[in-house]
Simulated scan of single mutants.
Amino acid sequence: MSGITSYHAGLSAEDAVAQDYQRRGCTVVSRRWRGKGGEIDLIVQSGDGLIFVEVKKSRSHGRAAQSLSRHQMDRISMAASEFLGTQPRGQLTDVRFDLATVNGIGEIAILENAFQEF
């Protein structure tokens, strides 16, 4: 897959995942939020808490999940901490880190609290 094709496939996957969270009653707060620590694909609000979502697309859910490295998780965590500095409750905000995978036929799987699994 060329770089531009991969980029557009990633945007499409993020769109689908954002819609999935909205169907679950969440509100999308930000997409591709970039801080000094890195980028967060999606930030969604669920009740009083926030969910930081990393979206991965590949031929299979397993392959997509394997592409998330500890280094990426650390960068996302740093960016999330920076984002929380902009929120009324700051670091006291309830948070969760999810991994959303999209397979080759567009099916979505969400692993809640994914960063605790590694």
Rank of each mutant, 00 (worst) to 15 (best):
D94G: 09
A80C: 03
Q72L: 08
D98F: 04
T86F: 08
Q72Y: 08
G90V: 04
S81Q: 13
L84D: 04
T93E: 06
Q91Y: 09
L92P: 00
S81V: 02
H71Q: 13
D74Y: 12
H71T: 14
T101E: 10
M73Y: 04
Q87S: 05
L84Q: 04
S77E: 12
G90I: 08
A79W: 03
T86S: 11
R70D: 07
S77R: 14
L99K: 03
L92V: 00
L92K: 13
G85P: 09
I76T: 07
M73Q: 12
D94T: 13
S77C: 07
P88W: 10
L92A: 15
R75P: 01
Q72I: 03
F97M: 04
A80T: 01
M78T: 10
F83W: 09
A79I: 00
E82M: 11
R75L: 14
D98I: 07
Q91G: 02
S69C: 03
P88K: 15
D74F: 11
V95P: 00
R96T: 13
L84F: 05
A79P: 01
D74M: 10
D94S: 15
G90Y: 08
T86P: 00
Q91H: 06
V102I: 10
Q72E: 15
E82A: 09
D94F: 14
D74I: 11
T93Q: 14
M73E: 02
R70A: 14
R75H: 09
F97R: 03
T101A: 07
Q91D: 06
S81L: 12
Q72T: 07
F97W: 10
T93I: 14
Q72G: 03
M73H: 07
F97G: 01
A80W: 06
L99H: 01
G85R: 08
P88A: 12
A79D: 06
P88R: 14
A80H: 00
Q72D: 15
I76L: 13
F97L: 02
Q87M: 14
M73K: 10
A100S: 09
S77H: 13
T93W: 08
A100P: 01
V95I: 13
M73L: 07
G85E: 03
Q91E: 09
L92H: 11
H71I: 14
Q87K: 15
R96Q: 13
P88L: 06
D74W: 13
R96E: 11
S69T: 08
H71P: 00
R89N: 02
Q87H: 11
F83A: 00
G85T: 01
V95D: 01
L84R: 03
L99F: 03
T101Y: 12
S69G: 03
S81E: 12
D94P: 10
R70W: 09
S77I: 01
S81Y: 08
